[in-house]
Deep mutational scan, measured.
Amino acid sequence: MSIQHFRVALIPFFAAFCLPVFAHPETLVKVKDAEDQLGARVGYIELDLNSGKILESFRPEERFPMMSTFKVLLCGAVLSRVDAGQEQLGRRIHYSQNDLVEYSPVTEKHLTDGMTVRELCSAAITMSDNTAANLLLTTIGGPKELTAFLHNMGDHVTRLDRWEPELNEAIPNDERDTTMPAAMATTLRKLLTGELLTLASRQQLIDWMEADKVAGPLLRSALPAGWFIADKSGAGERGSRGIIAALGPDGKPSRIVVIYTTGSQATMDERNRQIAEIGASLIKHW
């Protein structure tokens, strides 16, 4: 067993022997301040990774656009098919120029040779490549099948209805392509620590998230040296922004954090800054 596999296998073990965790309302004060600064709703939840206990939450059962955070769930569904012998990570998928959609920095470079399922998941999570996500959605049967996968996990809230990039439209009061912070946090925890996926697939999923290259201005910008984070960000229309993450000190994750916002007129930089400040408060009061 590799060191990384050992780390993920012992996530519940280490967490069980940690000192009790206590909620700190100071972080919620910052979440509410972010709402004021952005002029928009902000949803927040913080779960203990081992027990699933909610440590703090704000608007945990209000719907927010998922945006690209759905790509972690998508690759979880792909990995479940791999575990069941219905898919192979090494299978190569070929596609054409007509398949390319807006923001496809990886797939646009491989029109000639195609990409493997493993490479597509890596591109979808680490670079948020939209064509990679659409190609992977095709392998599982489309958005409705991802929703069905989530329902089978016990998540009857999260739903995907459309493809990239239309799913980022974020129309107010439109339930399409949305989740709730509580539902997303619980589902992410199941994917990373539950028995739904094999140990190898859980490790692969967290490795992809740990290698995320496009979430630097968010929670990662607030992390002290030595902290662990595996995350996936999302951005959408109407001032929408979000991030889902597993993080913790001492090089291992111990909490799940989900943050979503929508309806702001603020710039992307300002949305990023507010999420980073929430992260800084979380870490300060850990």
Rank of each mutant, 00 (worst) to 15 (best):
I243Q: 07
E175R: 06
L205M: 09
L167T: 00
P105Q: 02
G216A: 12
I259T: 14
G279K: 14
A84M: 06
E175M: 03
I93A: 01
M180E: 11
G239Y: 03
K30F: 15
H110P: 02
L28F: 12
E102Q: 00
A124G: 03
C75A: 05
E102P: 01
Q97S: 04
G263W: 02
E46L: 11
I259M: 06
V117H: 05
W227K: 09
Q88W: 08
K71S: 14
A276R: 12
A230D: 14
R59T: 04
D269F: 13
E26H: 07
E166Y: 05
D177A: 12
Q203Y: 02
D231C: 15
Y44G: 03
I243W: 13
G279V: 15
G239S: 00
A222Y: 15
L73Q: 01
T262G: 09
A215V: 12
L191Y: 13
V157D: 15
Q37C: 05
I229S: 10
S128D: 15
W163N: 15
V214W: 15
N134D: 02
L150W: 02
L120Q: 04
K284C: 03
L223D: 08
G142S: 01
T69R: 03
I125C: 13
H156R: 09
R162T: 01
L74E: 00
S51P: 01
R118M: 06
A170L: 00
Q265G: 11
T27V: 05
S128I: 03
S96F: 06
G239F: 04
P25R: 00
M127R: 13
M153A: 04
F58H: 04
L55F: 11
T267K: 12
R220D: 10
A148N: 06
A235Y: 14
I278S: 13
M209W: 13
E210L: 11
L135Y: 03
K53E: 09
L196N: 12
L219H: 09
R81W: 08
D161T: 01
V31E: 12
S96Y: 06
T107G: 03
H156Q: 08
G263V: 00
L74F: 01
E26G: 11
D36Q: 11
V257D: 15
E108I: 11
K232S: 12
V72D: 03
F228I: 12
R189Y: 14
E46F: 12
T178V: 13
V78F: 06
K213D: 15
R220Q: 14
N98H: 10
L74V: 09
T27C: 11
G236I: 12
P253Q: 10
N152I: 10
T138Q: 00
R176M: 00
L247R: 12
F70T: 02
P172D: 01
A246M: 11
L120Y: 12
R273C: 10
T261M: 13
M268H: 15
T198R: 00
L135F: 04
R238E: 04
A132C: 06
T69V: 12
R241A: 15
G142E: 00
T198F: 08
N168P: 01
F228G: 15
I243N: 09
S221F: 08
D83R: 06
A148E: 08
N130F: 13
V214H: 15
L79R: 01
N130S: 15
R81L: 13
Y95K: 06
V106R: 04
P60F: 04
E164G: 00
M66C: 08
S201Y: 02
I93V: 01
E46R: 04
E145G: 15
L205H: 07
V42F: 12
H94S: 10
M153W: 09
V117Y: 07
E35G: 10
W227P: 10
E145Q: 15
W286D: 05
K71D: 15
D231Q: 15
F228R: 14
L49N: 01
A40M: 05
M184E: 11
K252N: 08
V106D: 10
E26Q: 09
H110F: 11
P165Q: 00
R118D: 11
K252R: 06
F58G: 03
T107W: 13
T138M: 08
M66T: 04
V29Q: 14
A235Q: 15
H285E: 10
G242H: 02
K284P: 05
T116R: 03
G226M: 11
Q265C: 03
A225R: 07
L79D: 05
E62M: 13
R271L: 11
N152M: 12
E56A: 11
A276L: 12
L38Y: 00
D174S: 01
L136M: 05
M268R: 15
L219V: 07
N98C: 15
H285Y: 03
I93D: 00
G39M: 12
I54W: 10
T179H: 03
Q274T: 10
M127Q: 15
T112C: 01
V42M: 13
S80W: 15
S264H: 04
S221A: 14
D113I: 04
L150M: 13
L100N: 09
T27Y: 13
G279D: 10
Q97C: 00
V117W: 01
S80R: 14
K144A: 03
R238Y: 10
M127G: 12
D177T: 08
Q274R: 12
T262E: 07
V42L: 15
C121F: 00
A133G: 07
E46G: 03
L120V: 06
L196M: 08
E210H: 14
Q88T: 09
V117E: 12
L137Q: 03
Y95D: 15
G194P: 09
T262C: 10
S51K: 02
V82S: 02
L28R: 09
N130P: 04
L197C: 02
T193C: 07
Q265S: 11
N168I: 05
M268E: 15
N168R: 13
T198I: 10
D48F: 07
P172H: 04
T116W: 04
D250W: 14
T178Y: 11
I243F: 14
E56V: 06
A84C: 01
A123G: 04
Q97D: 00
F228S: 14
P165S: 01
M184K: 12
K144Y: 02
K32A: 09
G141H: 00
E270G: 15
V42Y: 13
A225W: 09
S254N: 04
G52T: 09
M268Y: 13
K284H: 05
P181M: 01
Q37G: 05
E108N: 11
L135W: 05
P172G: 00
